[in-house]
Each structure stands twice: as structure tokens, then as C-alpha cells.
Design a protein around this nucleic acid. Sequence first.
DNA 1: CGACTGGTTGATGACAGTCAACTGATGTGG
DNA 2: CCACATCAGTTGACTGTCATCAACCAGTCG
Lengths: 241, 241
Amino acid sequence: MTHLTSKTQINTSNNIHAIDSNSFVVSERKFLFQMGDQLDGIYRVNSGCVKLSRNTADGEKQIIGFYMAGDLIALDALADGFSHSTAVVLETANISLIPFATILNQDAKFDHHAFMHQLGVNYNNDNDHTMMLSQPAERRLAWFITKFSDGLAKRGMIANKFRMPMTGTDLASYLGMALETLSREIRGLCKQGLLNKSNRNIELLDMKYLIKIAAGGNADQESFANANAGWETSTNRTISY
Amino acid sequence: MTHLTSKTQINTSNNIHAIDSNSFVVSERKFLFQMGDQLDGIYRVNSGCVKLSRNTADGEKQIIGFYMAGDLIALDALADGFSHSTAVVLETANISLIPFATILNQDAKFDHHAFMHQLGVNYNNDNDHTMMLSQPAERRLAWFITKFSDGLAKRGMIANKFRMPMTGTDLASYLGMALETLSREIRGLCKQGLLNKSNRNIELLDMKYLIKIAAGGNADQESFANANAGWETSTNRTISY
DNA sequence: CGACTGGTTGATGACAGTCAACTGATGTGG
DNA sequence: CCACATCAGTTGACTGTCATCAACCAGTCG
């Protein structure tokens, strides 16, 4: 893995291709930045998928989020210019650097309104994540799956059949559970007929019921899938949040 | 409890006194805003303490943070102008409204740099909180206590002897544990000689060891307090983060 | 004074973490 | 292309942390 700390390196690395002055491509498994790096601004993900992680005080790595088109990352660098998290690309990504100067200076060409809006969206997503962590494992998983699917729908992609860009280990860390627990919970949802899974390929069979679980509806209740078998109930409906 | 949704109400409520055009006082137990309120901007806490909460999908209330002098709240309203959280004042607070227009418009009198800095600080604090939620209960508690103490120190207040502004129920919710668990964990730390507690008054006796627990050091190890009894090891040292 | 809110303590059990063994994918060098 | 190593994920058995339920106590307030 290469390691990016400055724009100079961006231009010299053969894994990172400048598209224009502000946007560049980072390929799978490459670092965008690491904890402690001094950044020139914050980043916007234009396409692909990036994971952010942090180290706990005792050195364990924890995933704090997965970011896709439109998301802002490295917001923590607003505090002091240094990144407090590590960014690794999961799916080859097009990234824009938004320099601090652009954010602070009254550059009319920069859409401050959209920036602030996105900041709020990111903030809300993070809060949702935080809140889910004190919920039962099955609920956390159902929440993630429906939210991920919704994210795809919002970006105009197929929402009921997709490939997870992250490993189970990463997802388990993000959801605050052991890898084994994640594996068992996924199997549980499969057995309930709510989804199919092979490797990282997921097919949602009963979105409504998954949403119900995510919202705290108990999985022991009668499944919508059982009560109303078929595809009518499992269309890739858009979740509002 | 009264409920503030607009500046009009701010001016009419006898619990809220305008100090200047931007700053006002909200007294204990009053709402600053509630989930769903349309806001005119985001708020800055100048003094006092404010708690933020959200409702889970199944209607349970969860505390997402406690905010003190310097902290920004209602950042989620940046997304769409509506608050996704509820703010209740715990200690009579002086609050400034920072209108969206001020943030977006190129108002030279507004310190955008300081604003962005504080945004990053808030963001980091939230990430810390999120990460702690998958740690053991004792560790979460030790983390909160040391962090709270550090927050007091940073604001020039006495850091090793203070009063908790929130109820145990609120703190338990924030830390993602049951009230009973919190009660037992506090007692556990007391029994280890790390702190004293009567009602909501806390006295830290061994900050270093609390920090060690917060960082993942096991409480079964020999306590610094036991190894090196006395006050020399329990001064209100400032934690760097 | 009773009714509340806030907090403590004990008994019990469930959810999920840990340990361990194993299977299946993916990748690498000879 | 195979042999091997490595990573990713599965499954089972066991254990422990912590949530739940319940009873109880201490302030506070109308």
C-alpha cells in the first residue's frame, strides 16, 4: 500500500491519476491519508468507496465509517489540520480535495451552501451510527443493510442486489460486534428469508421487514415475507431519513 | 418545561433573557429546541451545560452528548434546517445563535476559521464517543470521567472536584449502558480508591489510573493509588487529546 | 403527606464475546 | 499449474459481561 500525505505524492504515485486540478483517482487498497497526516483540506468522495478507521488508545483499529459519492471525509482535520483517522479506498475512488483556504476564503466559485448541507448530512449519519451501537446485534445489522441499500438507491444504483465493498471484519468493527456474531446474524437474516448472500453479494428479499427490524421490530414477529410472500413487498423502495 | 422554537418565543419567555442581539440565557430544565424544530442557525454554548438527545426508531430517548462552553450544537440542522435532536439545558446556559446566513455569507465580522476549528473539535469528540461504545462498561465510564474533568480543566475550572450536571439516567444512556450498570461501575471505581462520590459530586483521587483504565489498561492491575498513595499522583493534570 | 424522580442493590438469564477448529477463497513463487 | 501461504468466513462449545426484573431507599415537591 502506498501512503499519501501531500499533493506532491499524489502527482508522483502511479496509482493516483490527476483528473483535474482538484480531483484525482485512488485505487483499491490504497491509503488516502493516515492518522497524524497533515492535510491541506478535507476530501470529497466523488465515486467509489472509502473506509475511515481510528486506533483506540490500546492500539486496536476501529472502523468509523464507509463513505461513498457525495460524502465528505477528513472532517476531523478541521480542528487542527491533522487527520485523526486513516482513509483506505475499498473501491477505486475519484476524490476531490477541498482546500482549507477554499472553505475559509470567500471564494464565490465554491458552493458553501452545498458544503454545509453535506456537513449536516454527514453529521446526522454519524449520529445514527452512534445511536445504533447500543441496540441489539441483529438490529444493527438490519440497519446497516437497509441504510447501505438506501444509499445506493439515492445514488441511482440498484438497491436490492449489490456487492458489499468491505470485508466482514471491517463491517463487524463498524457495527461494534465480533466477526463471528456478524456471521451468525447474517445467517439468521438469510434463514428468515430476508436476504440471500454469497460471498459479498447481497440480495434483499424483504426490505420492509428489514426496516422493521432496524427500527426495533422484533424478528420473532411474523415476517412480511411469510405473510405476503413474493416480490411485491421487496421492491427497492427508497427509505426516507 | 417550556419549549423554544423561535426567537419570538425567546423574547417572550421569562426564562430567557436576551443579553445582546446574538446571545441569550436559557435556564435549567428548559428546552432550547426539539426534534423537528426549524432552526435559524446553529447554536454555540457560551456557558452552562446542554444535553442533546434523539429518539430511536422505536421511540426510546438516547443522549448523544453533553455540551459546554465553546461547543456548537444543532449541527445536524445544517443538512436541512431542521433539528434532528432535542436540546435541554442542564446548567443555566448562555447561548449564541449563529444564523445560517452568517455562516454562509461572507460576513467578515464572523470568525469562520474559529467556527471551522470548533466544528472539527466537535466532530472528533463525537468520534471518540462512538468508538468508546464498543468498549467495556468500566472503560467507558473512566473515559467519560477523565474527559469531563479534562473539559473542565481546559475551561479553567477545577478539574479534580466537580458536580456532574446530568442525571445518572442520562449518563447511562450516553454511555450505552443500563442505569444499574452505571451505578455498579461507579461504585467499582470508588472501591478501587480512584474517586469519591456523593450525590453528583465527584472527587478524582487517581486521575492517572483512570486514564489508564480509559485507555484499556485493566483495572485488575495494581492501582497507582495503591502503589503510590497520596495526592501527588492525583493532581488535576491536563490530558492532551 | 403521598407521589415522583433519582439512585442502589441483589438475583437471574440472555446476548454476544472468546477460543478453537475448520472450510473456502485469493494470491504468490517456483 | 500446482503447492503453499494467507486471508476471509463459518460453525460449535463455552463463558462473561451486562441487561432485566424487582424490591428498596433517599430526597424533593406540590
